[in-house]
Simulated scan of single mutants.
Amino acid sequence: MKRTISALSVLAAALLISAPPAQAAAPDPVRSLKAKLVSGHGVHFTEVSNWSDGVYTLQADTGEGVLQFGKKGVAGYDLRGSTWDDEKYRIISAGDTTYYSGAIYELPKGKTWYASEGGGALPTIYGQILNPAELATLSALVKNGTKAGNKITGKITFSDLAKVSPWFSGTVLTDWADDTEISYTLTLNSAGLVAKLSTSYRAKDVTDDFSDFEGGIISVDTRYSGWGGKVSVKAPNPKTVTDQLAE
């Protein structure tokens, strides 16, 4: 009996030693983001946008910049971009105004910035249509998606996105087909924050001003870094700004 008890004790000890340590639960992405939403802080991003007709693919846009946070999400941004034909532009959103410079608009002599009412929305059609710095948007993406490892994949319609995202709902895209589906893949870092976001959708029932986009597939890969670091987005010098276009 003593020998049996002794043998069982040795076996139990061996099992305890060889048992793998319990893995910590993966960080919740929404909770991780919420901890970073501090005014005066933000995140850096770079992105590449493509347009395709299903056969031919064109690199339509590249960009880099920063998103500045408020208590509930994006309070402003500063984006420097380049078009497919290497035309440069810059867009700044500060407060309730967005400022455009470069390839997008022709301006009166002596002015370098065009001011437009409305701020905090998607800068261009080729920009990243989903904004993972918005709490409600990220929550919807996580809820609708399927998680495997550090990736979350899913789909969300324009109409559902408009309900949660100021980034999207402030754009002309809300006038396109409500049932348009955006396919997405979120890649999370070890802290549960978004390190990469890939999206694609096919444009349909577009407005007349964007008829060339009809049927085209727009896809964007965006990488994020420096979550929670200090950033500063400032409006341009008022002397360089106009709300009129060149005649």
Rank of each mutant, 00 (worst) to 15 (best):
M1L: 12
K2H: 12
K2E: 10
K2F: 14
R3F: 09
T4R: 11
I5D: 00
I5M: 08
S6K: 03
S9E: 04
L11S: 08
A12F: 09
A12G: 10
A12W: 06
A13C: 09
A14V: 13
L16Q: 02
S18N: 07
A19H: 01
P21E: 06
P21V: 15
A22H: 05
Q23M: 07
P27S: 08
P29S: 04
S32A: 15
S32H: 00
A35M: 03
K36W: 00
V38N: 00
S39M: 02
S39A: 15
G40V: 04
G40L: 10
G42L: 10
G42E: 06
V43W: 01
V43T: 02
H44E: 14
E47D: 11
S49D: 12
S49V: 00
S49T: 13
N50V: 04
S52Y: 05
D53M: 06
D53I: 09
Y56T: 12
Y56P: 02
A60W: 05
T62H: 03
T62E: 11
T62Y: 06
G63A: 15
L67S: 00
Q68A: 14
K71F: 04
K72W: 00
V74D: 02
V74Y: 00
D78K: 09
D78M: 05
D78W: 07
R80A: 15
G81W: 12
G81I: 10
S82A: 08
S82D: 09
T83M: 10
W84Q: 14
E87K: 15
R90C: 15
R90G: 14
A94R: 15
D96V: 07
T97V: 13
Y99A: 13
Y99H: 10
Y99P: 13
Y100Q: 12
Y100D: 09
S101H: 02
L107G: 08
P108F: 04
K109M: 00
S116H: 06
E117H: 11
G118Q: 09
G118A: 06
G118K: 12
L122C: 04
T124I: 14
T124A: 03
T124R: 10
I125R: 11
